[in-house]
Simulated assay, not measured.
Amino acid sequence: MGTSLQPVDVLAPGANLNAYVQAVNGFAVLSAEEEKELAEKLYYHEDLEAARRLVLAHLRFVVHIAKTYSGYGLSQGDLIQEGNVGLMKAVKRFNPEKGVRLVSFAVHWIKAEMHEFILRNWRIVKVATTKAQRKLFFNLRGAKKRLAWLTEEETKVIAEDLGVETKHVREMEGRLSAYDAAFDAGSDDDDDTAYQAPAYYLEDKRYDPAVQLENADWSDSNAASLAKALEVLDDRSRDILQQRWLNEDKATLHELAAHYGVSAERIRQLEKNAMKKIRVAMEA
């Protein structure tokens, strides 16, 4: 086939995109008779070797489609990889009895995977979620003949061509013209520009006197409730909780077991029962 690459390699383009393109172009193009024979082997006998040959022969077609989406600023390698997933789905579902070539059937699956990838990665904020919005997203860029905003007449023409309302065209045009802004200042921003980041306009409430007073009251209230709840325990249970949870240097179960002359499991039971009593007392 003119290349030493394994099938797994050509399904996932690496850093050298030119080498990948050259490699997939080395796979022979199938004639209609060869394609039908392979498709029948896969369709009727689940022949995986036939599936492999069908996929490899059409990888160049995925590269061709990926180039048509170069205007979205996304990696061509990533687009090709997503398109290859669509190609494999198409090969798996291809029925040779329908009388069409695989390339005609596969184009839908390849584009569908690329569309999903573009919509997931083109912007941080989703620009197209409904079926009508997705249709506009992939057609409006090609419909605009210049960089300026659409005129009223141009908007009407595009709306009629795509079968949508003019307000939806305007809305999508605004989304396409917008850009993502970083929340925090960039690492290379200087003092004169860093303040423009949205993060600098949020109020820092950590040092708000009212918030600090509320936190202090809450802490004092919890401490008082815990001290009162500890009074319901017997001396041993209180000491176990004190040494296990409240002291800075916390004791282990085995250390307490040795101190009280019981098993570590008995200390664990006493600790568990004491916790239940504390919880009930604090909720009362």
Rank of each mutant, 00 (worst) to 15 (best):
S104Y: 08
V100H: 10
A32M: 10
N215Q: 13
G77E: 04
A51S: 06
E35V: 08
D47N: 14
L5Q: 13
A224H: 03
Y43M: 13
V62C: 01
R266G: 02
E113P: 00
S225A: 15
Y20D: 05
D234Q: 04
N84W: 03
E113W: 03
E153L: 07
Q81F: 06
S75T: 15
L230Q: 11
V62R: 00
K145I: 13
I267V: 10
R146H: 13
N16M: 08
A50P: 01
A28F: 10
A216H: 07
L213Q: 09
L5M: 14
R53Q: 14
F61M: 04
R238D: 05
P7F: 07
D190C: 09
I65G: 00
W218D: 10
E160Y: 06
K144T: 03
H58M: 11
K276W: 10
V169G: 01
L42Q: 15
A284Y: 10
E271T: 03
R101K: 07
E248L: 13
M282N: 02
Y260L: 03
E154P: 00
V125P: 00
G73S: 05
A112V: 05
L246A: 07
D191E: 15
E248T: 14
S4R: 15
Q243T: 07
R236T: 11
W149D: 12
A264E: 14
V55F: 06
Q242F: 15
W245H: 13
L256G: 01
D239R: 13
S70V: 09
V85N: 02
R206D: 08
T129V: 05
D161S: 12
T129R: 06
H58W: 05
L270E: 14
F117R: 08
K167I: 10
A251L: 04
R53Y: 14
L30W: 04
R266N: 07
L42I: 14
Y179A: 11
E248A: 14
M275L: 15
A281K: 10
H108F: 14
P198N: 03
D189P: 02
E82P: 00
E40L: 15
A39V: 06
K205M: 09
P7K: 02
